[in-house]
Amino acid sequence: MDIKAYIESGILELYVAGQLSEKENQEVYELMQQHPELLKEVLEIEASIVKLTAATSPNSVKFDAFKDKITDAKVIQLNPKKTDWVTYSGWAASIILAGGLIWTLNNNTELTNQIETVSTERQLLEIQIEKARDNLAETRRLLDALRTKDILTVPLNGQGNYDFAYAKVYWNKNDNTIYLDAKGLPNAPEGKVWQVWSLTLNPLTPTSLGIIDNFNTDDNKIFAITNTNESQAFGITLEPDGGSASPTMEQLYTLGVVNTAP
């Protein structure tokens, strides 16, 4: 256990205030036996609270003021009276009753604690469900987009040293959008970014379709990109942050030619 973090959490201040559960009190007590620095911390917190609370006292009440009362009580205890069965059974009954009450109370506290835990868990689950729903809606939307009738599929294959890389472009000419599925590309290293290019082949003219700066954080690695060009091929290069005006050919990872026959 990280004792420093435990101290910093503020749990010991609540311990002195008397606001921890029985279980936590026990835990603090046991840790204090093992870690003297914890005990020292508790003593200091306590000492400061003792001083602060004493400062609100309007006057002192001397111990002598009720010394008699406690010695009286002691004397009575030391001189057992004659056995009075009615009184004893009365006491016994009330003790049993009190025991029962305490038991019910404990049960109640425990149940309340459980309810609190459950309601926190429920909130967490709700957040997860909400997230899952959003993800599902997003995935459905993508799937619908990819299933459109007039969509062109362009596989991009790994180039040169990067023959492990691959990607796919789904091009919907009707709404001028390409969906780039770039699951086959590694994460862009620090200071670099993926840039997507539309190419016409004769003569070879690249037009940038933009950079994918959220590549590393995106979950499904599918990106919707606007493309109004009469593209004949698509390529992806790794460029310095911010992208480049023209593609760095040594960093061309994947390339694919559009098959014009639909």
């Binding site: 609270i49 003792v50 001083k51 609370t53 004493a54 400062a55 609100t56 006292s57 309007p58 006057n59 002192s60 009440v61 111990f63 010394k67 406690i70 010695t71 002691k74 205890q77």
Partner: peptide
């Protein structure tokens, strides 16, 4: 163990604080 002397010592340590809290 009901030692009045010990009680007095504890009383002197904490009675002002307790009084302060009660008075508040």
């Amino acid at each position: 163990k009901k030692d009045a002397k010990a009680f007095e010592t504890l009383y002197n340590m904490y009675s002002d604080s307790i009084h302060g809290v009660v008075y508040n």
